[in-house]
């Protein structure tokens, strides 16, 4: 009854999936779990925001008066457009148009750069005002209890988000190169879908940050 121990089947690494479909399934599920994890990361920050907004309602209400609503809104459009471009890139690959997909991805990447550029302009303005986090806060025009906390949260939340944008841009550039070099096909473009999911996550987080920091 003992199996022939001498002949282990030679199966290449990662060849343990039955077929490409189940491999894609696993990759998508893994990405969704990763996204859930990322959401919890931001949840901690949103909780902190809610906590201090409850403790200092006035400061958090007036905080938006010192924000560049125009730039924030512009950034929202930039990021949403960028997300749309990624979605279009995926459908382009599905239609077998790799070059178009690569171009769209490069466009999305460029919009990411624009986003960071605008964000940087805002940061510079705040730094110039002295609206820096915590110990460095020195903003004469907005000094009331909780004001420094508002700006601290602003810096931390947008800062963590900006790091995600940076990572996302790294992902997009890799994907763009792979798309342009014909790596993807109608049958196989899982990395592109996963990268797209990540970029949408970055976008959606901003869609929560924008009202909380600029509008509310």
């Amino acid at each position: 009854m003992r199996p022939e121990a001498s002949l282990p089947p030679v199966v290449p690494q990662a060849g343990h999936f039955g077929d490409e479909a189940s491999r894609q399934d696993a990759a998508h599920l893994g990405m969704w779990i990763f996204i859930a994890s990322e959401v919890m990361l931001f949840t901690a920050l949103f909780t902190a925001y809610a906590f201090y907004r409850y403790a200092y309602p006035d400061a958090f209400h007036q905080g938006r008066l010192h924000m560049e609503v125009g730039l924030g809104t512009l950034n929202t459009y930039v990021l949403v457009t960028s997300s749309i471009l990624v979605a279009l890139a995926i459908s382009a690959v599905r239609a077998g148009r790799d070059l178009r997909a690569g171009g769209l991805l490069l466009g999305a990447l460029a919009l990411g750069v624009v986003f960071l550029f605008i964000k940087g302009a805002e940061y510079t303005q705040h730094a110039h005002d002295g609206a820096l986090p915590g110990a460095w806060y020195d903003f004469e025009a907005f000094s009331m209890p909780g004001a420094s906390l508002f700006f601290t949260l602003y810096w931390v939340m947008t800062g963590v988000h900006a790091v995600h944008v940076l990572v996302g841009m790294g992902v997009l550039s890799t994907l763009a190169v792979r798309a342009l070099s014909g790596h993807f096909s109608v049958a196989y473009h899982t990395p592109l879908e996963l990268g797209g999911m990540y970029w949408h996550l970055v976008d959606i987080v901003w869609l929560f940050l924008w009202p909380l920091l600029y509008l509310a």
């Binding site: 806060y137 020195d138 000094s143 209890p145 420094s148």
Partner: peptide, 8 residues
């Protein structure tokens, strides 16, 4: 430190 930072 500026008065803002005084805890309430």
């Amino acid at each position: 430190p500026p008065t803002v930072q005084e805890p309430r």
